[in-house]
Design a protein around this nucleic acid. Structure first.
Lengths: 206, 206
DNA sequence: TGTACATCAGTGAACGCGCGTTCACTGATGTAC
DNA sequence: TGTACATCAGTGAACGCGCGTTCACTGATGTAC
């Protein structure tokens, strides 16, 4: 609740407010854990402007949420893409780590990401485009490729990469979601569980 | 949107409305997919009464949502408990099936169930009691017991049941959540994926 | 160099809406005498 | 058997609130002549 008034941007820097609006929206989303808390008035309070000033940068409230989610999606993919590793096996673990770390760092955005794919009662699923991005050539595609590399190098005993990649995705999604939902559950220490899920489902060799 | 007015209950049957309120709340939750849609006025419209009539049966709006979630939690556990099977292995599959089927039938309630465990910014996590119920002696405990039986019968190669049970829980939660979130994803047919997850993570013998 | 003007980056007041909740009430129905 | 009364199961009007969005505006700043 930053009640201080924000100094007006200089002449050419009107676009600076756009970024502050998006940051505030993301912050409100993470702090409250639900989209309903991200109101134009709450954003305005956070940024230190009045609510109508937002309309200079976004056509309506929904556009802000759409952008926050699209940015989060891009960030997740970027994070997976830059995951490093010496061997195919290490690259697979690094990609999964990046995925899980993203969900741990930005749990509300991670959750809202998936809520947006679900076709709603009113109108079609939002961000259908981002679904293709996530499941098509990118996040899921990277898992398939990574497991394909493990098969080629002999690190995985799987016959083909698609089915194991889907199994791994389901498992790391479950891991990320459940850890976020049940922080008080006595989770095993370190990475034992996550590594076990990946190793068994990607059919890695001992 | 049932706009017909509901006939007044007979003298002793005032409690009948309570059930109709809970059904309408659950229906609104499933139809809209979010808690915000479950308003007292929407419930009243659905049932065919006026909103203040609800206060005869629940102290406030939150109590209705709490009850819907608690009922869902009890239904999930009951469904798992009545899952049948000839062998330990079949009983494990049947329990997991029951879990996944519940999430598929009542996706919004399943999701909200977990949202409630998450400690929120304002106040502590609601329904901490139900968390113990779900993770303690019941849903998770049933998985542990079931895998323990598989180990005893030689159906599982695991050394102990706790870690595999957690892995299986994570995986079937991921499976249930992801299928609900991405209904348009090209999921493999039949039960191939789910069975594979369970078999590998519970370390079942071939 | 001075000045009129256009533009930019917002403000402040107001609108109509649906919401949770309260309050006083109403009309049917059972019970006591 | 009749009647006064208590109780039950709600209704209807109203409250204050925060919301998304609109509208007319304002004051600083750059630009043309």
């Amino acid at each position: 609740m930053d009640s201080a008034r924000r100094p007006r941007s200089a002449r050419g820097d009107g676009a600076a407010l756009r970024g502050e609006i998006l940051s505030a929206a993301a912050e409100l989303l993470e702090a409250n854990g639900n989209e309903a808390a991200v109101t134009l008035r709450a954003i305005a309070r956070e940024v230190g402007i009045t609510a109508p000033a937002i309309y200079g940068h976004f056509p309506d409230r929904q556009a802000i949420l759409d952008t926050v989610v699209a940015d989060a999606c891009a960030a997740l993919i970027a994070r997976m893409r830059t995951a490093q590793g010496e061997t195919p096996r290490e690259r697979l673990f690094a990609s999964c780590d990046a995925y899980v770390a993203f969900a741990a760092d930005q749990p509300a955005r991670y959750r809202v990401l998936f809520e947006r794919f679900r076709p709603s009662a009113h109108g079609e699923a939002r961000a259908a485009l981002t679904m293709d991005t996530l499941t098509g050539g990118d996040a899921f595609g990277m898992l398939v490729a990574s497991i394909g590399d493990c098969i080629a190098s002999g690190d995985s005993e799987a016959a083909e990469p698609h089915a194991p990649a889907l199994a791994v995705w389901v498992a790391i999604h479950g891991y990320a979601s459940l850890r976020a939902s049940l922080p008080r559950f006595p989770w095993p220490q370190e990475r034992a569980l996550l590594d076990d899920l990946i190793a068994r489902l990607a059919q890695l060799t001992a």
